[in-house]
């Protein structure tokens, strides 16, 4: 289940063209969501870390680091996603460019209440680039409708 991620910069004039990116839903978490893009450090989603209240409606983006960087894996990624959603995130985007194995760990999201999307490569760089430059942006997540590519079966 693919996701379209439409990004609209807040500082640009209203005519600014939105950027369209793509990701992959964690299975079972497909859905629509919108909110301001906000970074969450991987360590901010441990059960010991405190709840950092956000005023605006936001979507969390988490840059996952490679296993070599030895970031303490304080809890499973699904629990991290759940914690972010419990703290008010409308959806969670994981940049797994440096940690592809995360896709395996995040294969079943049926217990998630809201969308969780994996991004990588150029889509991830685009989003993290905005974060790094602190360019405020609204993000709209939607389910990409694939045109059916399979023949009709008569049984």
């Amino acid at each position: 289940p693919r996701a379209t991620i439409t990004v609209k910069l807040l500082k640009q004039e209203s005519t600014g063209r939105p950027i369209t990116l793509e990701g992959l839903f964690v299975r079972g978490s497909e859905g629509k969501a919108q909110g301001k893009l906000m970074q969450s450090h991987p360590l901010s989603l441990c059960n010991t870390s405190e709840d950092e209240r956000q005023e605006s409606i936001f979507i969390s983006i988490v840059k996952l680091e490679s296993p070599e960087s030895k970031v303490p894996q304080c809890q499973p990624l699904l629990d991290k996603a759940r914690l972010a959603l419990q703290r008010g995130a409308q959806a969670v985007i994981f940049d797994i460019s440096d940690d592809p194995s995360a896709a395996q760990e995040l294969r079943d999201g049926s217990s998630l209440a809201d969308p969780v999307v994996l991004v990588t490569s150029s889509d991830a760089d685009e989003l993290m680039g905005l974060v790094n430059k602190n360019e405020e942006a609204m993000v709209y997540i939607d389910i990409m409708i694939d045109s059916p590519t399979w023949p009709h079966y008569d049984v």
Partner: peptide
């Protein structure tokens, strides 16, 4: 994955918010 090209997914954002 053709990205940033204005392909058929050209959405009017107000429509998107209503759609939600």
């Amino acid at each position: 994955f053709p990205i940033h090209t204005d392909n058929n997914y050209d959405l009017d954002l107000e429509e998107f918010q209503l759609a939600i």
